[in-house]
Amino acid sequence: MAKLGELARLIRSKNAGPFELTFDIMFDDEATFKRVCDSHVLNAELIARLYNLSANQVQFFIVPPALAIKASIPRPRFQGDVLDSDGHGGQQYAPLIDIEIP
């Protein structure tokens, strides 16, 4: 087992416009990318659980040329709303770091 944060070159979150939030998980090499994809641990259901959504609200992508996995969700609060806490959406990925990958 290894934590996703140890396997990925970069895990990041960012606004995709003011109304959506997107997560990019990028890898350095084909083997690690394949290991994470083939584990099937990362999927729309897991993202939904971590961000308190239903799976049909999560867009989930495998992007082989970029050696990347991507997920997009509706923003918990619209960007800049009074109760929003992360204007750029840049610090919402922490729960992904500790995901255990076999």
């Binding site: 960012k14 416009g17 959506e20 997107t22 990028m26 867009q59 992007v63 990347a68 991507k70």
Partner: peptide
């Protein structure tokens, strides 16, 4: 090649389809 491919992910919700006024850019076969 990886850094260029990865850029399609940045600040987009869908890395394969980018919507513009006059149509949709499809990167599936790039």
């Amino acid at each position: 090649p990886q850094s260029v491919a990865a850029h399609a992910l940045y600040e987009n919700s869908n890395p394969y389809r980018l919507v513009e006024s006059s149509g949709v850019l499809d990167l599936t076969h790039a």
